[in-house]
Amino acid sequence: MKTKLIINGQDRALDADPRVTLLDALRNHLGLPGAKKGCDHGQCGACTVIVNGRRVNSCLTLACMHDGDAVTTIEGIGMADDLDPLQQAFVRHDGYQCGYCTPGQICSARAMLDEAEAGWPSFVSEEMDGAIDLSQLSDEEISERMSGNICRCSAYSNIVDAIREIAHEKQGASA
């Protein structure tokens, strides 16, 4: 099955069994092991990547379903010598321990901030009127929106610290 993907801005051609998930395509076929396999069933979020601007569990979608789609993986957010501010915040706040869920957390957080900025409510939102001030995004909002990413080392409160810092800065920058 021939599939064309735009991964981290580059055209990539894949010719693989249609059973290959987007996650396995990235890890086993395209040399991008940043997205992790934690459960393979959409129950942990370690495989989170951003497809056409939206965070998804790459383990629960077939690569062949994404012909022509733009995929951003952790490698596209920033490499070790050129980290994105969100990645730097994770380092600074120790928003990880073993590091295995981390790429998924960061991809998820990146897209989550866009969702919030677009006014998407969450289950813990008091008001559902489509207006969210990122500079006021509460810890509870961040936690609920990040609950699809499990961290068994349980760096959660540090992860919230890292994301809050970026969320609050982001609004400041765009204001």
Binding site: L32, A80, Q87, F90, I106
Partner: peptide, 10 residues
Amino acid sequence: EGKLKVSGTA
């Protein structure tokens, strides 16, 4: 090793 972990390259 933090930079490797946050960039998925560990």
